[in-house]
Every structure is written in structure tokens, then in C-alpha cells.
Amino acid sequence: MMKIDYQTNWIDLARRVLDGRGVTREEALDILRSSDDELLDLLAAAFLIRRRYFGKKVKLNMIINAKSKMCPEDCAYCSQSAISKAPVSKYPLVSKEEIIAGAREAERRKAGTYCIVISGRRPSDREIERIAEAVEEIRATTTLKICCCLGLLTPAQADRLARAGVHRYNHNLNTSRDRYGDICTTHTYDDRVRTLEHVKEAGISPCSGVIFGMGESDEEAVDMAFALKEMDADSIPCNFLNPIPGTPLEGMETLNPRRCLKLLCMMRFVNPSKEIRIAGGRERNLRSLQVLGLYPANSIFVGDYLTTPGQAPTEDWAMIEDLGFEIEECAL
């Protein structure tokens, strides 16, 4: 089939998306393979979609690494995995009081969502209970929304988190189904999907995303976007690989800022009404073009990531203000 020349037609494609016609896989591939000369046209078209659903609001999220380097899995990208030689801090689940203190810091950073993350294959019931008790107190004393990322869950654990008031649960697909075995061998793609199903059944909003830059093809990147569409993930974190020394993927450098922007645009076209978040690796991979990522995306992390530093919250606030956008107020 002849490739469509979208140089003057990205806006037309965006309008068709807004009229309810989803993009095809071929059109998603065309976005990734578009010329750099078309990038501003593509960003303008993605912004039409983003503006329909989110206006000029930017949602801020803050992470607490509540349990570090205590993981038996072999995920190739992760500095906290059992096979990682990266020099990161190792500690068990922090106290309930420390989790609650993190929520206060999230408020100071103007975050609307506080993300409680722990390393490991799956949480114990005791860990679930400590986190649930902290969430109950945070919900009673703040307007923060709570997201948890705790690994594989049982239905009973998902139900306990729902009763505590967890709004959202993150469990990333990370890569495509076909490529999953190249990235992790200690659990499967279907294990991750099963946890997301438990979360949805418990009434918690599903959050699931990807890590771009791990050697995936254009076709595999598109597969990820459509898998998340089929899953109906409400929030989609788009991570860009930070190849941490000591991990199997150290030294892998396949991304540039223009490629990252095209990936964000593709994700917006495929999942037009969903929260698209620029997540880990933002500063390293988008570099001086970070601000342009907010034309397709409507959400970022503020502050540091799990084991790597982010830019200062004041820089994020200034970036949003300079673009003429505004931080989404923290409210239930």
C-alpha cells in the first residue's frame, strides 16, 4: 500500500481521531517513520487531541521508593533487579510514618498523585496492610490521589488496596508481548496482564505503560500502544530507557529527542483520551526538547525517580509556566 504523505495532513488525521475514528497500525507506524521536517506539524496535531481532553493542564506525580533493591526478578532495565550490579540503596519497606511523610512532600511539590512504589516480585500481606493503613491516613488528611506499584497482586490484595482508597495501580507492560522474554525471564507478560485484571476487578483504575529504547522495532512500539488501548489503561507512563551502569542494558543508546517526541505523539493518537505521562528518562532523552513533550503528553513526574535523579521541581513548574500551561490542581 502506498504510504500517505501526511506532511500537510497530520491535522486532518487528528480531526478524524476526534471524530471517533481510531488510527490504524499503519498510520501509527507512519507517525514513527515521519520526517523530522514534519515534527512541528505532528506535535501541533497531537496537541489538538490532547487539548480536547485535557486542555492546557499538566498533572504532576511524585514517587516514593518505599522498598529498594529487594527483588528476585531479572528485568534487564532495572537497577534494583537481582542481576543488577548498580550501586543503589537497599532497604526493606519503610514505616507507615515515612510513607505518610512522603505524601506531605508530594503536596509541597504541587503533585496531584502520590505514587507508592516497592521493589520485589509481589508484596506480602503484611506489606499490603502497612501500605493500606498509610493510604487510609493520607486519604483522610489530604486531597492527593494515590497510586501504588507493588508488583504482582492477588485478588484479595487488590481488594484490600481498593478498600483503603487507592485510586490507581501501576503495573507496566514495559515492552511488547513478542519481545518480553528478551527483557525478563522470571515472570511473563501474561503475569502482568493478570495483575491488571485483578486491579480492574477490584475497582481500581489501571495504570500501565512502556519503556521505549530497549531495542524494540517500530512495529513493536506500535504493538505496545495498541495493547494498552485494548487493555483500556487509564494512565500510560511512557518511560525512555536510562541505561544505568551495572544493568544488562547499560550502554544501549537508541533514542534521540525527536524520536521520543514521535513516540509520545503516536501514543496520543492511539490512546486519545488517556493520561499520557512522560516518565523515567525524560531529562536524559528529551533533553532541551522536554517542554515540547507536553504538547502530546499531559502528565509528568516531579522530582526524582526510583533510583535516578530528576530535575528540580522548580524547573518543572517553570517549564509548564513558560509554555503557557498550568499545573492541574490537586482535588478529588
Rank of each mutant, 00 (worst) to 15 (best):
D316H: 14
E97M: 04
Q290G: 08
I63K: 04
Y189H: 14
Q7F: 11
K90D: 01
P296N: 12
M267N: 15
S95A: 11
D322G: 13
R109G: 05
L264V: 14
R192M: 08
G20M: 05
T308I: 10
G246P: 01
E27R: 05
T188G: 03
V17L: 11
V210Y: 10
L152M: 12
R16Y: 10
A28S: 08
V199M: 07
M267P: 10
E328Q: 15
S68F: 08
R50L: 06
A312C: 11
P245L: 11
A202T: 02
C149N: 12
P72Y: 14
E328A: 15
G310P: 02
I118L: 09
L39I: 09
R177K: 14
D223T: 06
C207G: 08
M70F: 08
E105Q: 12
G151A: 11
T247A: 08
S35I: 09
I236M: 06
D19H: 09
G246W: 07
D234P: 00
P87Q: 15
H187A: 06
C330P: 03
D316K: 15
I4T: 13
C260P: 11
L292R: 02
P243F: 12
K56V: 04
R282I: 00
S273I: 03
A279D: 08
P123T: 13
P243Q: 13
A14L: 07
Y189W: 14
R33C: 09
Y295T: 02
S79T: 10
K56H: 07
E326F: 15
L152T: 12
F212N: 05
L42W: 08
L18I: 09
W317G: 00
G246A: 05
E315V: 08
A158D: 00
N285G: 04
F226K: 05
K145I: 01
S35H: 09
D190F: 11
D12W: 12
E219C: 11
S95F: 10
M214F: 12
M252Q: 14
A132P: 07
S208W: 04
